[in-house]
Design a protein around this nucleic acid. Sequence first.
DNA 1: AAATAAATTTAGACTAACCTAAAAAAATAA
DNA 2: TTATTTTTTTAGGTTAGTCTAAATTTATTT
Lengths: 221, 221
Amino acid sequence: MYSFTEENYLKTIYKLSELHSKNISTNAIAQIIQTKAASVTDMVKRLSDKKLIRYEKYKGVSLTEKGKKVALDTIRKHRIWESFLHTKLKFGWDEVHEIAEQLEHIKSEVLIDRLDEFLGFPTRDPHGDPIPSKTGSIPKNTYKILADMMEDEQVVMNGVLDHSPIFLQYLSKLKLEIGTVLLIIEKIEYDNSMTVKINGKTVQLSNNVTQNILVIPDARK
Amino acid sequence: MYSFTEENYLKTIYKLSELHSKNISTNAIAQIIQTKAASVTDMVKRLSDKKLIRYEKYKGVSLTEKGKKVALDTIRKHRIWESFLHTKLKFGWDEVHEIAEQLEHIKSEVLIDRLDEFLGFPTRDPHGDPIPSKTGSIPKNTYKILADMMEDEQVVMNGVLDHSPIFLQYLSKLKLEIGTVLLIIEKIEYDNSMTVKINGKTVQLSNNVTQNILVIPDARK
DNA sequence: AAATAAATTTAGACTAACCTAAAAAAATAA
DNA sequence: TTATTTTTTTAGGTTAGTCTAAATTTATTT
């Protein structure tokens, strides 16, 4: 059984690996875990001793299969709990992360299985992120970034890259949530902003926003 | 905010206080927390520094109002989670305690409020134990012990004193659960056992068992 | 390629929560 | 009431996870 801290390190390394694919640096981990680089070096040595990661001094770390399994298991729990909080307890998508950060460390395999069943085996969490299966398989995202779409295309919002409450609250205010249909009216070259139509309403989205929204082309169009 | 360990100590002291009403000894705590007396002395000093308990060397401890609040809050969370596990996730009453031991330490007031609401504001957990209110009030048990009832009385099972899985599983096997109606057929003086009728079936209950079952007189009789 | 800057690791300390072994106090028995 | 047993506390250590400050390695400039 692994500690809260160990699970958090492994989860963080997994997420960073998804983005950078290279070896993950001590500093990158420190920034996310909100700790000091020296503490990360310490922890990373212990995780390496337990064969959960590969670590070479000054060269960064990467997950072993064993470590990846623990990371995916933790992410699975996190996302199932988020789904529970959202669909059953009516928490907003901007509120679920923080509580799930705690719940993901509860030790009980049967608990998460029952919860999964209770929720009807969801495949995505409230932010559109895929929920890893029990065996640790996770569907690759085939989503596109809204910023890359063309004028006149119609797309369906399917996820976000930025999970911060502020960003999510802003999207909620725009009535922009998972499943919302977007029509791209115009792309402004000057600042890379975008004019889109959401439920009949025309709104202006900055590049900062469109870079963090994941979409798929709308089948209906 | 208090640590898992602190909450567990306070909860334990509260429960022991309910039973003995006197000052609680180091050894009694050690036995329940599954630790050594020396460790308890350590912890008890720290809890005393934080004004959560009153502690005098060699004289045992008692909760302050502040400590009692934390204890009741933890018990509230424990019992609400147990109710959730039982009524929504279909865990047996012998299975809920262990998982709730972890869940009770999740830090979020709104989470427990939402869960409470989701469950329809239950007043008792799956073992019949009362759930403390948000303000920390808890109904006094007016239940009687089955062993003390008279021949020919009809009673309703309303709780247990022994919460061990083995005992609870035994009761389940007898189809004896919260709400079950019992008719006392005969009390055997020799070994203080009891012959009772449960749903038309006659069974023999040892003194050990009847001492751990809480009942109320059946209104229907 | 040397100098400087940035990232990483080491060394040494801290805290919470635990431990064992020995000492001290309280309770019980003779 | 003294002697013995039991309970509790103290003293000194351990581990996980953290920290700061200094040393070392790697990366970047000039």
